[in-house]
């Protein structure tokens, strides 16, 4: 159960990053169906972030606090929980709202998205931010998994 939850959390998170990366790629090289595809990718990315949030949150609240956190804190690298995990769990909370904002601009601008340079730039900037924070969170997740294994979890 624990492995399944972590796997779903990671896969949905990575796919969400990939979805917003596809929004960037589509906008940088617009084609006939770009507007439709950008809407679909942004919506999928936002839904995946919410799924990752709920599944990761369930794992964090149910298993991490009791089974993993004490071992990491008593191990050789307590900073992995005290700095990395604490930062990850709170910075993650920014992503749902940033993705709603990016998706909201995309759906509200419609055809203007491809014609209006400023709107396109705004969406590109927000998607880049989502991707960067997403990648940083993925890296932190890797550190936490490594720290947990080093502390004897699993």
């Amino acid at each position: 159960m624990v492995n399944l939850l972590v796997t779903i959390h990671v896969i949905t998170g990575v796919l969400a990053i990939f979805a917003f990366l596809l929004v960037v790629v589509e906008l940088l090289d617009p084609k006939e169906k770009t507007a439709k595809r950008v809407k679909a990718f942004a919506l999928i990315g936002t839904i995946l972030i919410f799924v990752s949030w709920v599944v990761g949150g369930y794992y964090y609240v149910t298993y991490y606090g009791t089974d993993v956190k004490p071992l990491i804190k008593e191990g050789a690298s307590p900073w992995i929980h005290s700095v990395v995990m604490e930062t990850k769990e709170h910075v993650f909370l920014f992503l749902p709202f940033l993705s709603i904002l990016a998706t909201g601009i995309i759906f509200s601008s419609n055809a203007e998205l491809l014609k209006n340079h400023k709107t396109k730039l705004a969406v590109l900037l927000l998607c880049a931010l989502i991707i960067l924070i997403g990648l940083a969170i993925t890296g932190m997740g890797f550190l936490i998994s490594t720290g947990a294994r080093a502390a004897g979890v699993g």
């Binding site: 307590p78 900073w79 005290s82 700095v83 604490e86 930062t87 709170h90 910075v91 920014f94 940033l98 904002l101 601009i105 601008s109 209006n116 400023k118 709107t119 730039l121 705004a122 969406v123 900037l125 927000l126 931010l129 924070i133 940083a136």
Partner: peptide, 27 residues
Amino acid sequence: STNWAINTSIATILAVIIIFGFYLWHF
């Protein structure tokens, strides 16, 4: 949209730095 996206991005990056810096300082 561009100005607002820049404002939101700056606010978010600052928030990330503050949270990371706080936990680092706390530890």
